[in-house]
Simulated assay, not measured.
Amino acid sequence: MTDLDGVQSGEYDVVVIGAGPVGENVADRARAAGLSTAVIESELIGGECSYWACMPSKALLRPVVARADARRVAGLSDAVQGPLDVDAVLAHRDYETSHWKDDGQVGWLESIGADIYRGKGRLTGVRQVSVTGADGTERHLTARHAVAVCTGSRAVVPSLPGIADVRPWTSREATSAKEVPGRLVVVGGGVVGVEMATVWQGLGAEVTMVIRGGQLLPRMEPFAGELVAEALTEAGARILTGVSTTAVSRAGHDGPVTVELDDGERLEADEILFATGRAPRTDDLGLDTVGLEPGSWLTVDDSCRVDGSDWLYAVGDVNHRALLTHQGKYQARIAGAAIAARAQGTPPLETDPWGAHAATADHAAVPQVVFTD
């Protein structure tokens, strides 16, 4: 591993900002092509999917959905009527996330010959990247051929009266919570909303879903949302549609949360989860130093190269083509191959346009699965 208190500058063929599944795959393809590669990560190597999304959410969902299925099987239903062992479920979730330790993924990146920099990566100019460590030490890296932005996306929390004092859950808190809340309000009926409502209702919480639109999973076929709503209602959840949250407040530091709705109803809960969309992690990335807008989604071609650039790539969620881990990994392999080809002075193989753009097609052409009951 490369430490931040060593040499203060370095030059690489490729610099990757973000070491989630997308950044790891870009690095792997670059190294396989013989390109020297630096990978920068400010949190855990392995990213959102490994610690706060795919892995923990599926570990939590599996026993809940398996029990629900078993309860519908003749001859088996009576044997599975009791509650789940919450401690065992949470312990298995912790195991699947490696207890939020990234040693194994660090070892994998090191095994392919990538240099790891722990700290905040930021563009400072064309092919220039700074890395600021937790102790404030700064290093400067130069990319001979490409910089790949693989910083992913973050949960959006709406600006509501009282929101700062409530300390709301996002997908991160929902997948890493250490105990079951007695009452949970879930705002949003998309994938994160229905998956986490399924989990915590199944583990014993009283769940109320607040949906601004008319159905769950609005980007999928209507029958999918209807079936999930039926299953959640059967499990005991309450689903409110056509209503919006107007204000929230918490009594004291650890008291209950009051949720005010635009139809006049007031809900009380122990925690509130906002599953109301994603935004790109590009706010403090130095995009302004290369003529781009901080906080924006980055528009790319089909090799994931940013429009108007011959060196900057945006791979995964940040390009807004498909906010799905498996699609980000496919993009990473495309981008890695394109970077390698261009570094060797040859154009990448031509490909037909792939996938769908979220802003125009609502992921319509992208295969995806919602894991719920």
Rank of each mutant, 00 (worst) to 15 (best):
G10Y: 02
T289D: 13
L123W: 04
C54T: 02
S98Q: 12
I211F: 14
S57P: 01
G188M: 08
L240R: 03
D115M: 05
K120Y: 14
V318C: 13
R266E: 15
A224C: 13
P161C: 07
G190T: 06
K101F: 13
T351H: 01
T289W: 01
V7G: 11
L298E: 10
V147M: 03
V243Q: 05
E206S: 15
V300F: 11
K329H: 03
A332Q: 01
G18F: 10
A33M: 00
G213M: 10
G255N: 04
W108E: 14
T289A: 14
S153C: 06
L61P: 00
G136S: 11
A66H: 12
P294C: 04
D317Q: 06
A59G: 04
V16N: 09
H357F: 11
G162K: 00
T245G: 04
K329A: 12
G193W: 08
A32V: 01
V14P: 10
C150V: 06
W108F: 15
L160C: 06
V199L: 10
T142I: 09
D165Q: 08
T198R: 09
Y51W: 01
V185G: 04
P56Y: 02
A27D: 04
V370L: 03
H363L: 15
I112F: 05
Q331M: 07
G242F: 05
T233E: 05
G336I: 09
L240D: 10
P181K: 04
E24D: 11
G213T: 01
F371E: 10
A53L: 12
G152L: 09
S98W: 13
R127C: 15
W169E: 03
T351K: 07
P181A: 11
